[in-house]
């Protein structure tokens, strides 16, 4: 895609923005939990350096969507390709995709028995086989980036929620991923801590990281999102720029949902 698409074209989920080139592609993806279909024929592309915000009511399949992208859930039909690697039963592919994608969870999921620095350096040392000294240098740099270098030697339980979530971001970044997935990173936080986490995420977006963010922070969406995806009942209902969603969403369901969260 040589020219920047105009807003109208962006209403198709498979048209991307960003620095050219598609890095994530989902085609006709279905996902079942038993008889219940959590994803229905999802088609979507994400461009390099693009920031996509996913919104939608509870149970609409947002988490399932991004968890399929790093194979925390197995999709049942369709294709998911991440940075040229298709996810299948191939353990090599799974390993490669997980190495290239970082994930941040709602509940932080830090490892409570390891210090902050060990949390951050564990994966580089074990997966990338980075030497300890090098890993620690890198780890401190990541902590620097999320503005908590002084907490390196504490244990997670000794930090505030906002600090913990920033450690979680640093931990994911330490693997130097090409894509970052965020699943409601601020919804378990006290209101006064939400901003510090959002700041770190905005900073990250400015460095050109490809990001898919499930969040209802529409301020964040407006500021950094290239596109917003609205999901309901396992389907992508509407796609567009944040501006589009604020000014004239086309679907009734979207309007109803937005009226509830704004």
């Amino acid at each position: 895609m040589s020219t920047e698409p105009i807003a109208e074209e962006l209403r198709d989920a498979t048209v991307t923005r960003g620095a050219g080139g598609v890095i994530i592609e989902l085609a006709q993806v279905d996902k079942f939990f038993g008889d219940f279909q959590a994803l229905k024929d999802v088609n979507m592309k994400v461009g390099k350096q693009e920031v996509v915000v996913v919104i939608g009511p509870s149970g609409s399949g947002k988490s399932t969507l991004i968890r399929c992208i790093n194979r925390l859930e197995e999709h049942d039909a369709g294709r998911i390709v991440v940075d040229g690697v298709e996810l299948s039963n191939d353990i090599k592919a799974i390993r490669e995709v997980r190495r290239e994608t970082g994930m941040v969870f709602q509940q932080f999921n830090l490892f409570p028995h390891l210090t902050v620095l060990d949390n951050v350096t564990l994966a580089p040392r074990q997966v990338r086989k980075t030497p300890r000294a090098e890993a620690e240098r890198l780890g401190r740099q990541m902590l620097e980036q999320v503005k908590i270098p002084e907490q390196a030697d504490k244990y997670p339980a000794q930090l505030s929620g906002g600090q913990q979530q920033r450690v979680a971001i640093a931990r994911a970044l330490a693997m130097q991923p090409k894509v970052m997935l965020f699943d409601e990173p601020t919804s378990a936080l006290d209101p006064e801590m939400i901003n510090e986490v959002l700041e770190s995420m905005k900073e990250l977006a400015r460095t050109g990281m490809t990001m898919i963010v499930v969040t209802h922070e529409m301020g964040f969406a407006r500021e950094v999102a290239d596109r917003v995806v609205f999901m309901e009942e396992g389907q992508i209902v509407e796609v567009g720029t944040a501006e589009h969603f604020f000014t004239n969403p086309s679907e009734e369901r979207t309007k109803l949902f937005l009226s509830q969260i704004l």
Partner: peptide, 18 residues
């Protein structure tokens, strides 16, 4: 153990036995 522990480790790309 909360389930998130294992998921976080998987998401980092750690192999199962690690």
């Amino acid at each position: 153990l909360p389930e998130g522990q294992e998921e976080a480790a998987k998401a980092l790309g750690l192999p199962a036995w690690r």
